[in-house]
């Protein structure tokens, strides 16, 4: 067994010696890593933004992409370590899958000389100036609480600023959806004639979402709107509304604008989408990396990317439609 181990060690040694030089490029090549949270259209659109910014820069840039198979630090960390182990990475654009658990691995990467740029999600509390974590270069992403407030205001405007509304959430404990719900509560509180009659958690399952919404529709005869904190929650709620024959009578707002959500909107299941701007996040992240590389010392620690509200009235407007997370196959 010892001999076998030695053999393996030698093989690995030879391989690494022979492979490493292939990575070491000219000194003026900038190596940027992109490590999103999981395979999904949101991050795919972000990757398109990254690529676009690299193309627009005209510089000699090598992009290294790794994508975790599930949204979890357990799957993301090994990929991170592998990227850092290359030894030539200058910048890492990363959507950390956990704000606490990813701190240490990213700190190690930073210590190895990689500049970190957070996209979509953050580590620590997201405040890279005064918060506990300050080593990343910047956090570029939308503010989920703000997204919740925007959803509340858009819904209020649509229903005449009065009536009962209901929230379909995924699971308690997920920072993004919790913040969306919280922002939505704050937003609804701005309207004295509006009231949230309840929140239910569907475990990210449309079937349970339908069941819960159907029961709430029975309980609250005068419900005017439902906020789904992600696409599945909204889709399930919308199906229940449709089955009760109330399509059009009750507004269903979906957070995020996947192409599937857009489809559900065209079918009348969902009435409004709150779109984030992943393309912007990816593009700006590369811009900030290049700025830093060029010697800019005042890269903003926080760049909020904002939202677009998509409804049936503006979905065919190309200026709005481009916010739908649609990627060509």
């Amino acid at each position: 067994m010892k001999k076998l181990g030695l053999l393996a060690f030698v093989i690995i040694l030879i391989l690494s010696v022979s492979v490493v030089p292939a990575f070491s490029q000219d000194d003026d090549t900038i190596v940027i890593g992109f490590l999103p949270g999981v395979v999904d259209p949101f991050y795919q659109l972000m990757e398109i933004g990254v690529n676009q910014a690299i193309a627009d820069s005209g510089l000699n840039i090598e992009l290294v992409v790794q994508i975790p198979e599930s949204f979890s630090p357990t799957t993301q960390t090994p990929l991170l370590d592998a990227m850092v182990a290359r030894g030539d990475l200058d910048y890492l654009i990363v959507a950390a899958t956990d704000k606490e658990q990813m701190v240490a691995p990213l700190q190690l990467a930073h210590d190895a000389g990689v500049e970190i740029i957070s996209v979509d999600t953050f580590i620590g509390d997201g405040d890279y100036v005064n918060g506990p974590i300050t080593f990343p270069l910047s956090y570029i992403g939308s503010d989920n609480a703000e997204g919740g407030r925007i959803a509340a205001r858009a819904l209020a405007a649509n229903v005449g600023e009065e009536g009962k509304v209901y929230v379909q959430n995924v699971n308690p404990g997920i920072s993004t959806t919790d913040q969306r719900e919280e922002g939505f509560r704050e937003g609804i509180a701005e309207f004295p004639n509006m009231e949230i009659v309840g929140v239910d958690y569907n475990e990210d399952n449309e079937n349970l979402s339908v069941q819960q919404t159907a029961a709430v529709l029975e309980r609250e005869a005068d419900l005017v709107g439902i906020f789904g904190t992600n696409v599945f929650s909204a889709n399930g709620a919308g199906i229940a509304v449709g089955n009760a024959g109330l399509s059009g009578a009750i507004d269903v707002i979906a957070f995020d604008a996947t192409s599937f959500a857009a489809e559900q909107m065209r079918a009348g299941v969902v009435s409004m989408m709150i779109a984030q701007k992943p393309f912007d996040m990816g593009y700006l992240a590369v811009e900030m990396a290049l700025a830093h590389n060029a010697g800019v010392t005042s890269v903003p620690k926080r760049i909020p990317t904002g939202y677009a509200v998509i409804t049936m009235d503006n979905i065919d407007d190309p200026a709005i439609a481009r916010f739908i997370y649609e990627v060509g196959e």
Partner: peptide, 13 residues
């Protein structure tokens, strides 16, 4: 029902 194919549809059930 949901006019979408969802890999995670059954796991929670």
């Amino acid at each position: 029902r949901f006019s979408g194919g969802d890999a995670r549809a059954g796991d929670p059930l």
